[in-house]
Design a protein around this nucleic acid. Structure first.
Length: 333
DNA sequence: CGTCTGACTGCCC
DNA sequence: TGGGCAGCCAGAC
């Protein structure tokens, strides 16, 4: 089985499983690391697990005392940006720390991290869905929204992708697909093996896509399936999920405007709706990192706008005259 | 369903 | 610089 896991610090783990014919056989959300561990333990030994998160901190191998990883350096040179992993675990973003923990769980379940050498089964590795999409759909996203672009990249590569899949789910499927390419010796790795590599597909030119017609079937043992079934509620709409995922990924010390979030989530004029969604999830994502187009905090932020600015100040954001310096602190994903 | 409201924006004074 | 205002989208009846 080829397994993909999308990690979110606040909303748990999305898990996708693809079989050898590239049919999606399982798509579910596990809210906790423990639930994910149960899934991992139920996997066949010869599975390959791809995770959208780093396995460990930077080892400082980039010349010049840089703090990020070699993989980030290499991808940056290719025009692919990703949030850098710091050398010290304590300052890593919470979703990164979830990733570190997940890789430990996977190792215990019989899937140690792959560092280099020939592809083999019974391993886990880091992937980056954005990079996978880029390889499969082309570098330019054009006028497509992120989710449309993601879906286009997976079309004809994986059978059985639900029409209403969220971005989290698509990312998990992209990870599972990356595991498939890895196991079929069609992959490239970025980074230094001593530190950890990011794996991306390198599709064979003769690649003809999934071999079987669309169909969904559970191929996991019953106890695991039962746990998944009880843990699969996703009440948010796809747009709301994208918004929450995006905001969850704004790093400490950076901010985004409501309009930035709306644009990144595929609805350029949906800034107001972003506010609606954040208001409904005040504790699940770092909403203090979202400010208006002038850099001002929300008048109705829990605890007051001053509290929001305090939190930002504590993260190192410069605040002046009741507003943040957007030029300096704005985050571009 | 239709209608209303809001952690928004850009544009016009 | 700042207030008014129309347009916008998701969520709540």
């Amino acid at each position: 089985m080829f397994v993909g896991i999308d990690v979110s610090a606040t909303r748990g783990f999305d898990v996708a499983v693809v079989d050898d014919d590239r049919r999606l056989v399982l798509l579910a959300k596990a809210k906790t690391l423990e639930a994910t561990a149960v899934i991992a333990q139920g996997l066949p030994k010869e599975s390959v697990v791809a995770v959208d998160a780093p396995p460990g901190p930077s080892r400082g191998l980039v010349p010049g005392g840089k703090r990020y990883r070699v993989a980030e350096e290499e991808l940056h040179r290719m025009g692919v940006s990703l949030y850098p992993v710091p050398p010290d675990e304590a300052t890593a973003a919470s979703w990164m720390r979830e990733g570190f923990a997940l890789f430990e769980v996977l190792a215990k379940a019989g899937f140690p991290v792959f560092f280099d050498g020939a592809a083999r089964q019974g391993v886990s590795f880091e992937c980056y869905p954005h990079l996978t999409y880029r390889t499969l759909a082309g570098a330019s996203r054009g006028s497509l929204s992120k989710i449309e672009w993601s879906r286009a990249a997976l079309r004809r590569r994986v059978a059985g992708v639900p029409k209403d899949a969220t971005q989290d789910e698509l990312d998990a499927i992209a990870a599972a697909l990356t595991a498939w390419f890895f196991a079929h010796e069609q992959f490239v790795g970025y980074g230094d093996p001593r530190e950890g590599v990011i794996i991306a597909p390198a599709p064979d030119e003769r690649d003809e896509g999934p071999l079987a017609p669309d169909q969904l079937a559970l191929a996991i043992d019953a106890p695991t399936a039962a746990i998944l079934a009880s843990d699969t509620t996703t009440k948010e709409t796809p747009f709301a999920q994208r918004v929450l995922r995006f905001v969850a990924n704004i790093p400490p010390g950076r901010v985004a405007t409501f309009g930035d979030v709306a644009r990144a989530c595929g609805k350029a004029t949906g800034a107001r709706a972003v506010g609606t969604i954040l208001a409904a999830h005040p504790f699940e994502v770092p909403t203090h990192r979202v400010v208006d187009a002038n850099g001002r905090p929300s008048p109705v932020y829990g605890g007051g706008p001053e509290r929001q600015l305090e939190r930002l100040t504590a993260e190192g954001v410069r605040v002046d005259g009741g507003k943040v310096d957007l030029k300096e602190s704005r985050w571009r994903a």
